[in-house]
Each structure stands twice: as C-alpha cells, then as structure tokens.
Design a protein around this nucleic acid. Sequence first.
DNA 1: GTGTAAGTTTACGTAAACGTAAAGATGATA
DNA 2: TATCATCTTTACGTTTACGTAAACTTACAC
Lengths: 140, 140
Amino acid sequence: MSKTTFSIRDLASEFDVTTRSIRFYEDQGLLFPTRKGQTRIYSSQDRVRLKLILRGKRLGFSLAESKELFELWDQTPGGSMKQLERLQAKITEKKQALEQQLNDIAMLQIELDSAEARCQSAMQELLVQKENVLQEQNPK
Amino acid sequence: MSKTTFSIRDLASEFDVTTRSIRFYEDQGLLFPTRKGQTRIYSSQDRVRLKLILRGKRLGFSLAESKELFELWDQTPGGSMKQLERLQAKITEKKQALEQQLNDIAMLQIELDSAEARCQSAMQELLVQKENVLQEQNPK
DNA sequence: GTGTAAGTTTACGTAAACGTAAAGATGATA
DNA sequence: TATCATCTTTACGTTTACGTAAACTTACAC
C-alpha cells in the first residue's frame, strides 16, 4: 500500500518546493490539509492537488487559475447547467492555449536545434584555428 | 516587399501588447530601436525580437532569461570557447525544459478530455431530468 | 493658431508569489 | 529536564512585469 498521509516536509521534499509555498497555497484556498493539533496533515488527495498546482505553474497557470479550475471541477457532479457551461468553456479555453503552447514549443525546438548547430560549428572553428597556430609554432 | 520599419503602435497592435510593455522591454535591455528625433523606430529585427520575447513569455521565460539567451546568441560568431560552452549548456537546459513541458501538456490534455467528458455527461443528465419533469406535468 | 492624436520621460502604484525574520508551541532525544 | 528539530502564526520585505497618471513635445487637421 502506498502512504496515505504526509507531513508538510514530506511534500516539500518530494516536489522540491518550500514549506512556505505549500502554506501559501493553502492560504490562497488551493489546499485544505487537516490538522493534528496544530500540525498540518496532508492526504493523498492533497498531494495530487499539489502536483497539479505545480504542473500548472510550469505551464504558466496562475494560482488563481488553478483554483478556479479546481472549484469548477469539484462542483461538477450536481452542478447547475450554468456552472457546467462555464466549466466547458474553461476547458475549451485551456485546450486552445495548450495547442498554442505546442506550436510555440515546436518552433522553439527547431530554433534551438539550429542554434546548437551554429554553436557547434563556431566551437569547431576555434579548435581548427588553435591547431593551425600550433602547426606554425611547430612546423615539421 | 514587406515593411522594414515600424512604429511602436504598429508593433503594439500587431502583437496585442501595450506600448508600455514594449518600452519596458527596451528599458530592460531586450530591444534597441533607433530614433527619429525622439520617436522610436523599430526594424524588422526588433520586430522578430519582440515576437521571440512574447513567445518566451508564453512558455514561462522571464525577461531576464530571454535577455540572456539573446546576448549569448549575439556573441556566438567570434565568441570565446567559454562563452560558446555556456551557450551550449543553456541550449541543452532549455531543450530539457521543453521536453518536460511536452510531458506536462500531454498529461493535461488527457485530463482535460476526461473532464470534458464528465462535464458533458453531467449536462446530459440535467437535460434528461428536465424532460422527465415535463412528461410528468404533461402526460400523454 | 488651435486642437487633438500619438509620441515621449518620469515616477509612483500594484498584483502575484513567495522570502525571510521573529517569536512561540510541541514532540523526540540525550 | 534541557535541548534540539520541526512545526506554527504573524508580518513586513522583495522581485517581476507591467499599470497609470502627470506633464511635455511633435505632427498633422481644421
């Protein structure tokens, strides 16, 4: 069986964030750990949430955006038609943004490859120059 | 032939950013427009730079990061071996980050699809309920 | 000339996402 | 029992990326 509860340090070291950040996310209403005394106890649900928050950040989501998505998602079963339509709209919006990102990444990858090639040949050029200097200094 | 110079407003409306932002990028050393009197004139080089800056932002680059990449890139021809090695390292780093992003996007796309399905069926459920109510009120 | 529209500099303001320090509570350990 | 180590709250500080307002110049339109 996998672990079911986590300390704040567990999560902090697993995902390489500070405890300050994790508490901040709670402050902003994205996490809701239970307490044992005054100490925070995180469920594996909380852990998943944190993972989603961090992935969102890597993709440029603000905390407010992630929070909004969580809330829409949590209300899905039993939500009103209007809420569901808002969720659908958000999903469509995010999907489009991801398409844009895929484009951006593809283009940047091409450019990085070309930059790498240019960089390599510049380095090669330097090596050749060096050899030439050595040959002049030390002609056979 | 395509346009070779641009006003700050040209660029602002083409890329949908404020002139304030464009001036800020110059302030931070990412753009270097020439002047006609005191008015800024942007070359198509500058335009490309701006495009790169904005794409970088969409991919989570800070302005400082973009600036660093520009500077390394500009020094590539005639750069020292050490500079070239730094560039190569940066390129490798960015490529890895892009791989991570591709992973993140792929996973998020899957989740969005599944969320969309759940959302759709919740909406379908609401419609069915509505029909049932109507049938009760209006039995044939 | 007189707006007025778009450009400029200067400078203070702001939101987001934490960093960091202070000061106290709690539990394990020597 | 004393001392850590780790948790907590509170609160002010900081960086990034601009927003916004003020006060000024320049270029056409009337």
